[in-house]
């Protein structure tokens, strides 16, 4: 049987019905399926032990939400020019709860975990590490947002074996690892010394700050096509009307009559390694 991979959902309120919902983007599932896993979305925090029991691996997916700093013994700092409401809007109690309980349950069973973006931060926090709440402000440097930059992989690391000594990545993080969680070591850094990947010294557990699931999937095309349609950061009174118009005139699904032939890359080195760990073959 294919390894059963549990993916963590993102968490939002539906701007139309005001109901809370879970969501995930298709590329996480495509990347898992391309590497030979069977992807499922976790939906209920109270069943973290059942999920950890039935699954072969956990994919901690990315999200716009930050981990609540209280989870690493700090108070939420309100960024300059922002309000306490802005700071709280960047957090999700339900997402923290689901991610951290799942992460700890899989760690307790020595089962494979792959953290991506926020998922790597969750992994670090679950293992007792901490984060810079405001990467650029705390470290007095500029960090590329949505633009390519280079990171160096640690010499002799598994990551260097998989991807080579230097890779070009792109991500959207505004936070970064401060203190490493117990058992983790840095597997890749920027030239400024920001940790971009972590590997566990003993457990089959690792994380990266960039987004390998976008590799050969439709994400980049979707971004180019859709980024100007809606503004999720600052919803305004026109949002509902714009969304309604969007769905009327341009479904996100247009052009796909079936999911049978979406891109499922079979040569994604990190996902292939993760699924091999889940098969206990790596």
């Amino acid at each position: 049987m294919k390894p059963l991979i549990i993916i963590t959902p993102d968490d939002f309120n539906d701007p139309m019905s005001h109901r809370p919902f879970y969501l995930t983007k298709r590329s996480y599932a495509s990347a898992v399926a391309g590497a030979g896993g069977s992807p499922y979305l976790a939906l209920e925090a109270r069943f973290y032990e059942d999920y950890a029991e039935m699954a072969d691996g956990l994919l901690l997916a990315g999200s716009m939400y930050n981990v609540n700093p209280a989870r690493y013994n700090e108070s939420v700092r309100v960024p300059e020019g922002k309000t306490v409401f802005d700071a709280q809007a960047a957090l999700s109690f339900t997402k923290d709860s689901l991610d951290l309980t799942l992460c700890k349950a899989f760690l307790a069973k020595d089962k494979p975990i792959f953290g991506i973006g926020r998922g790597m931060e969750v992994l670090n926090v679950a293992l007792g590490g901490s984060l810079y709440q405001d990467l650029e402000g705390d470290l007095k440097l500029k960090h590329p947002q949505g633009a390519d930059y280079k990171v160096k992989t640690a010499e002799g690391s598994k990551l260097a074996e998989l991807l080579g000594p230097e890779i070009t990545v792109k991500n959207y993080n505004t936070q970064a690892i401060k203190e490493l969680g117990e058992g983790l070591e840095a597997a890749a850094c920027t030239e400024n010394g920001i940790i971009e990947a972590v590997w566990h010294k003993e457990l089959p557990v690792f994380g990266v700050m960039w987004h390998p699931e976008t590799y050969k999937t439709s994400d980049d095309a979707d971004w180019a096509e859709n980024k100007d349609l809606i503004d999720p950061i600052e919803p305004d009174m026109e949002l509902n009307a714009r969304l309604m118009e969007f769905f009327k005139t341009k479904s996100p699904m247009t052009g796909f009559a079936t999911d049978k032939d979406v891109e499922r890359p079979t040569d994604n080195a990190l996902f292939n390694y993760f699924i091999a760990l889940c098969r206990k073959e790596a």
Binding site: D14, L23, R26, L41, D219
Partner: peptide, 18 residues
Amino acid sequence: WGPCLDLQFYAQGMMLTK
């Protein structure tokens, strides 16, 4: 699931009301 647009990447996604 129902269809949705992921609001971080504007990518195609899947959603479910809790």
